[in-house]
Write a protein that binds this DNA or RNA. Structure first.
Lengths: 224, 224
DNA sequence: GACTATAGGTGTACGATGTACACTTGTCAA
DNA sequence: TTGACAAGTGTACATCGTACACCTATAGTC
């Protein structure tokens, strides 16, 4: 590398590395994401990255915290249900933008944005009058649903209403087993015509859960 | 390898390879799972595996289908709610046994057990009187919840009631940020004493969802 | 029994990956 | 001027998945 090139190159920084890493992962996916590839993208030799991040694991930790930082915190001014609804939708949106992060949101060393987020969500529920136990329940169902939905969305590849049915059909056809599975046939044939939409589907389940929570908010009880 | 050893060694087969692969992944986790390690476990040279599976991807496909095969199908004799409840609990149990599979259940080429499972679940809902659209909604919420819960369970490492609070505390302490996050402090202090239990937590959210579905079963409506 | 096709296991080799370690170089304080 | 330090380089190594050519034991066939 010539002096020239080095001279007019913005110097690396931890922030720049993380930001580029997120961009590369967004575009290429997690399997195709490598230290070497990232270095190339930054016009730098692979080992240069290690002056700014300890290793790939720590880099991933930082990337995940960037995703957390993009999630809207529950508003203090709205009622709890609206606040939870907004943050759920915001979380799904962030995971859609950064689908490589889906399996990693809770599995890595938590960063500051992660902690702020969890603290705010729990705070929203407690301030709304949920008992501690109830707040834990409420948090658990919601997050399980949000992360689970994001995971399915990514896995099944239902990206557009059209592709939903296509995907179902393709999957089944590949092993030519539709005949013995009438209910899969039904999905493959009806889903494309049904105007299936991921955002609508997500909201449907979310509202079901929030309704359930609203009913139980003041009882200490388990669901009937 | 001597003739002796070769002679008294049971020959490989696709089934034996898959079975061993699941066992190795159960024990070592997915990151530590390699073709070379699996070969060693089977007392065979790495390339020998390729006579029975096309490549690692196809091997993983097969492993996932084994996990599906361990999931109890919804019973035809129970009412839909009980049947769904049992299969949900059975799914979580299978994912607990094989936690390496959690992110892969719906992302790979579906095998026969996968198709049988999906067909049976959809069938159970349709036979119970859910309209097609409603059955899709019902399926979607349930599976999102199940997979999401399994993911959290694995990620957060809340394995025993005791370790739940510990885990929360450890996480937060590692970056010494508990002071600014009162609600995380509350979790870290109260959760260990609360008798938190994953199985109970799972059932709580599951029942919330099933109750919601029961209420909406015959209306075509969205949640209130 | 001799001959040969085939299935199953072996050995070597290649490119990709993460990263340890020793080096250069550009910048700034004293 | 010196010399410390931060940033980037280059080489090297272990580990991974797997292509390819090879060997060998068994099963038919004549």
């Amino acid at each position: 590398m010539t002096k020239q090139k080095i001279a007019n190159r913005k110097p690396l920084s931890r922030a720049r590395v993380l930001q580029a890493a997120v961009a590369v992962a967004d575009e290429a996916g997690l399997e195709a994401f490598s230290m070497r590839g990232l270095a190339q993208e930054l016009g730098v030799v692979p080992m240069a990255l290690y002056k700014h991040v300890a290793n790939k694991e720590e880099l991933l930790d930082g990337m995940v915290d960037i995703v957390f930082s993009e999630i809207e915190l529950p508003s203090g001014t709205l009622d709890w249900r609206s606040a939870m609804r907004r943050r759920a939708i915001s979380t799904r949106a962030a995971l859609q933008r950064h689908s490589w992060a889906i399996g990693m949101m809770e599995s890595r060393r938590p960063g500051p944005a992660n902690l702020r987020n969890h603290n705010a969500v729990m705070g929203c529920l407690r301030k709304a009058g949920f008992s501690f136990e109830m707040a834990i329940h409420a948090y658990s169902v919601q997050d399980a649903y949000i992360y689970g939905f994001a995971l399915q969305e990514k896995d099944l590849g239902f990206e557009t209403p059209d592709s939903a049915g296509e995907a179902a059909q393709r999957r089944a056809e590949t092993i030519g087993a539709l005949e013995n599975h009438p209910y899969l046939v039904e999905i493959a044939t009806k889903l494309p015509k049904s105007g299936y939409d991921n955002a609508v589907e997500f909201a449907w389940g979310l509202d079901l859960i929030l309704d359930g929570l609203a009913q139980l908010r003041h009882t200490g009880a388990a669901p009937a």
